[in-house]
Simulated scan of single mutants.
Amino acid sequence: MKHVELDKLDQRILEVLQRDGRISNQQLAAQVSLSPAACWRRVRALEESGVITGYSAHLAPERIGLGLCVLVNLSLQRHTIDSTAEIERQVSSYPEVLQCFAVTGNADFVLRVIVPDMVSYDRFLNEKIFTLQGIAQVNSNFALREIKNTQTIPVGGAMT
């Protein structure tokens, strides 16, 4: 995928939109010192180039009964393209899995799973994870408390 060059105005637009995706174009334009038409064109270009991939609401999982967060390490028996692709397809279909990463190190995949409680997690393991073909080992790490959870990507030198 091609890298998109962002100027200072694009960076500022992205910073504001990551904080408030529901901001009106008028308000966004005022915050970044652009005309509404120019601001709209820039946001549209960022969407069309794939820099902005969507907009969503952030939820508090514990407020809706999903208070158990588990980081699950999966290790495979064999590493073939077909078996790996099938596991990726299956795991991606599970609503309990919020994130799935193919990783290096002690596991092949790390999943971020959210469920109501331990009973639900046990059911998730038995009915979904343990039924996957080619899994050699499953290791569960239960989150005690959340220290940082953000989808905000630093733009414009924020990582230096």
Rank of each mutant, 00 (worst) to 15 (best):
Q27M: 06
R123W: 04
E146H: 15
E127A: 10
N106H: 08
V110T: 09
T160E: 15
V97E: 09
V32A: 14
G65I: 01
L66E: 04
V51T: 14
I81H: 10
I81N: 09
I23G: 09
I114G: 04
C69P: 01
A45N: 06
S35I: 09
V16G: 04
I135D: 05
F109G: 02
E15T: 14
L9Q: 04
N106P: 01
M118N: 04
L6N: 00
C100F: 00
V43G: 05
L46R: 03
R12V: 09
Q77L: 10
L125N: 10
V103F: 13
M118T: 03
I135F: 07
G156Y: 00
F130P: 01
N73I: 02
R89G: 04
A57E: 14
S56L: 06
Q27I: 10
R22Q: 02
R44I: 06
I23C: 07
K128H: 15
T150A: 11
I81F: 07
T53R: 09
N73K: 11
S120T: 05
Q99S: 13
L28W: 06
R41Y: 06
R89C: 07
G54E: 01
A102V: 11
E48D: 10
F101L: 13
T104I: 08
V4S: 02
R78L: 04
D117Q: 13
P95G: 08
G67M: 10
Q133P: 10
S35F: 05
Y94N: 02
D82Y: 08
K8V: 10
N126S: 14
L14R: 06
H3E: 13
D122K: 14
L66F: 13
L6Q: 02
L144Y: 12
E96F: 03
V103C: 12
S75D: 01
